[in-house]
Amino acid sequence: MCTLEKRGNIFFLTLTGTDEHRLNPNLIDSIRAALHTVRSEVTSSSSSALITTAQGKFFSNGYDLKWALVDKGARLQLISKKFRSLVSDLINLPVPTIAAITGHASAAGFVFALCHDYIMMRKDRGFLYMSDLDIGFQIPIWFSPLLKCKVGSPAVWREVVLKATKLTGDMAVERGIVDSAYDGVEETVEAAVKLGEELVRRKWDGKVYAGCRKTLYVELLNKLGTDETVGDYGDDEPNKKTLSKL
Rank of each mutant, 00 (worst) to 15 (best):
V189L: 11
K223V: 05
G211S: 11
E219V: 07
K207H: 07
L162K: 15
G184H: 04
M121E: 10
E187W: 04
M120S: 07
G176C: 03
W204Y: 08
T229A: 06
K203I: 05
D235G: 14
Y118L: 11
V185S: 08
F143C: 09
F137T: 05
P145E: 13
V218M: 04
F112N: 12
D227P: 01
E237L: 15
R201Q: 13
A191W: 03
R213S: 04
M130Y: 13
W142Q: 06
L220Y: 07
N222C: 06
D179Q: 13
L195W: 07
F137N: 08
V185I: 14
E159F: 02
H104P: 08
R175S: 03
I177A: 12
D179A: 08
C149M: 06
V160C: 04
K207V: 08
V230P: 00
M171G: 01
A105Q: 04
A181H: 03
K203R: 15
P145I: 09
S180Q: 09
V200A: 06
E159C: 08
K150V: 04
D205K: 01
D134Q: 14
G184Y: 02
L146S: 11
T168W: 12
K163S: 06
Y182T: 00
G231N: 05
Y209A: 07
A164F: 07
V156A: 09
K240M: 13
A191C: 02
T226D: 07
F112L: 14
G211E: 13
T229W: 04
L220S: 12
E197R: 14
N222D: 14
D124N: 15
G225F: 08
R125F: 14
D134P: 05
A172H: 01
G103D: 07
V193L: 10
A113Y: 13
G103L: 09
A191G: 05
T168N: 12
A181W: 02
Y118S: 09
G109Q: 11
V218Q: 12
S153F: 01
V189R: 01
A105V: 08
K214R: 15
V151H: 02
I119G: 00
D132G: 11
P145H: 07
F127M: 07
P140M: 03
E198R: 13
P140V: 02
R213T: 12
V193D: 08
V156P: 00
V208W: 00
A108K: 02
G176L: 02
G136F: 06
K223D: 06
G136W: 06
F143A: 07
G109D: 06
G206T: 01
A192Q: 03
Y233C: 01
F143W: 15
K207G: 03
A105R: 05
L199P: 01
G109P: 00
A210Y: 04
Y209M: 12
A105P: 00
A107R: 10
M171R: 05
T188Q: 02
V218A: 11
V218K: 13
L221N: 10
K163G: 00
L133H: 11
K148V: 10
